[in-house]
Amino acid sequence: MKTLKNIFPFALLAALLVVASCKKEDTIDPNEKGSVVLEFDNIYEGQQLKLNDVTYKTAAGEDINISQFDYFVSNIHLVKEDGSEYIVPQDNSYFLVKESNVASQTLTLTDVPAANYKSVKFMIGVDSLRNTMDVSKRTGILDPAAGAAGMYWSWNSGYIFMKMEGTSPSAPLDSATNLRKFRMHIGGFGGLNSKTINNIKEASLTDADGEMAKVRASAKPTFHITVDASKVLNGSTNVSLKTNATTMFNAFSVNVANNYQSMFKVDHVHN
């Protein structure tokens, strides 16, 4: 009895502390801002993607070596646990992820309201508005002379959303390079004066274990996103490089875009 009496105040204090700490977790200052990182980790099925040296097998049974794997990520939305969304301001919401450039694979979003974010949503590609806007507003990775070099079609104005190139013994011999090249250049924003293919895709990603990114002024969480390059050629259409080694602005490109739409996955969240 006596011991219990002695313990009681401590127990009460402990309970209060727990409650207080819970409370701290629940009430987030609406004016508090923090950062969140989107880390794009390019893989090929279960392996780290490695350009040039490693030979991979496609679902069509063909060997490939990948020399380039680049894609636009834009129009990012972060979904809070209550379902409401924080929309990253347009001017800070365009990124070009390149496998050959490690720095480009880490996207840091700043000035993000403190909250618990369960999902991240984004566009794979560039929206039609940015595809048709005045050239003077196309800076950084949207500038065809700078950041977007190689990711822009000049003869049919518009950005290339996803570009994968490499070699495959199954692909026909390319006379220009004397290599058995394959080239997947996927774009198409729907057209301005006439309607045409629209390969703009969206991804909405949530951690399978329900882990949320807890953005605080003092905490910079990371969505670690794996991007499975094998999905470009494998999926609802298993692309054969024997017949479709060069897939650019054509009707077949829709199949490739439908494939790669599912290449993004939240592997885990670091808090």
Partner: peptide, 8 residues
């Protein structure tokens, strides 16, 4: 008509 803007 592949280009919709003279600036491009």
């Amino acid at each position: 008509g592949g280009v919709h803007d003279l600036d491009l």
